[in-house]
Amino acid sequence: MTLDARREVRARVNGRQTSVQVHTTTMLADLLRDDLGLTGTKVSCDMQVCGACAVLVDGHPVSACTYLAIDVHERDVVTVEGLASSDGSLSELQQSFIDRFALQCGFCTPGFLMMATALLGENPRPTETEVREYLEGSICRCSGYRPIVDAILAVCEGRGGTDGA
């Protein structure tokens, strides 16, 4: 074993089997952005606090800024580029963010979309309180959060209402 050896990572990224050589010190965000060109994933605080780098690994949200790239070996990764269908049509959440003006500068938006996708995967009918709690580790400095929460709840309502929201 050698220090900082390059290692092959084989992972499914947005549905495509991918193989990349990375250093042991490479973070997942850098693998996605630099090696795969998936620059939708943003890095802001770089300390797992702001949520801009949120992606899904095996369906669960993680902070790609503080997650070793080698740890996605044989895992399934979804980034914001993986939310739209192959024909280019946006996911319900993406469309709802547009419809409700849930973004301004847009830098945090990929992270919010990934967290919202994870939330609705775990809890398809969240209350407003549950939405806000789930987003406690996601920071937006433009919107004041109201339109983001509305956009997420609107998707739930479109699917048949929320519980007590």
């Binding site: 797992q48 606090v49 949120a54 993680v62 997650y67 994870a118």
Partner: peptide, 8 residues
Amino acid sequence: GNPRVRWQ
């Protein structure tokens, strides 16, 4: 923490 910390 937050949901990401809880899943990691």
